[in-house]
Write a protein that binds this DNA or RNA. Sequence first.
DNA 1: CTTATGTCAGTAATACTGACATTC
DNA 2: CGAATGTCAGTATTACTGACATAA
Lengths: 141, 141
Amino acid sequence: MDAPIRMTDFPSWLLGQAAARAQRLIGEHLGRLGARGYHFRLLATLAEHGPLSQAALGRHTGIHVSEIVAALNELAAAGHVERSPDPTDRRRNVVTLTPAGQGYLGRLHHELLLAQDELLAPLTAAERAQLMTLLRRLAEH
Amino acid sequence: MDAPIRMTDFPSWLLGQAAARAQRLIGEHLGRLGARGYHFRLLATLAEHGPLSQAALGRHTGIHVSEIVAALNELAAAGHVERSPDPTDRRRNVVTLTPAGQGYLGRLHHELLLAQDELLAPLTAAERAQLMTLLRRLAEH
DNA sequence: CTTATGTCAGTAATACTGACATTC
DNA sequence: CGAATGTCAGTATTACTGACATAA
């Protein structure tokens, strides 16, 4: 007699469950400030690398170009970034983080730290580090 | 000077990356047999619990009722399950796993085991067990 | 001519909401 | 009547494809 096949025993299932919980937490926390993941990723990339074209933002973040357009529309409307034509290449928009955008990024970052803490609440500090190491090995292919 | 904010340092990000890889692998492996995750989950639940109504399948699997309808349509068309009216409650369909469905479930299960092995290839057996334990604690809320 | 860029419309997968008729 | 069941249409989200005009 075979043991019943339980999907809950599959690592992929557990990963999916944990990731779903993470995404729900992040969505809630970013939503408090009217943002979604793309907004944070774009702002953080601009803070790290300075002004970038939209195509370069796509390369750095892995976000699809058409998604970048939509997210930047929202960020620009809120005054968190500015689009200006690149004088050296007139196809390009140079996207710049505004001071308001920097403040917003800081608040988003803080919310995300809260979300991480909620997510990892069941684990000790040592276990958290262990989990990060194992996940990194998986994610790095 | 603050360190740059890297989303790749967030546990939620690593979880998402690893889960995305898992889902891609599972999609590829199940796709070889023309299935998606729902099909396996429904068949495995029927194998574990015996014939069930569609509402009961929804409760056991967590799959939304309207998704159950669609997935069962496909499974029934392929001859892997049979829907028959419940004589004791004429609102209900009793869904039964056919012999062909049992064979199919076995082949899907095998594909999923291959996918898990590809997913966990970077880890030793001890690390795999460790990861499972940690993920279970996270997923269990 | 080919490629890169930015924009937009459309599509696919996943998961949910709402409405409905039937039956309990 | 209120609640459960099965069905279907529609919607939201995320991520991608295709087409296009412009400029390099």
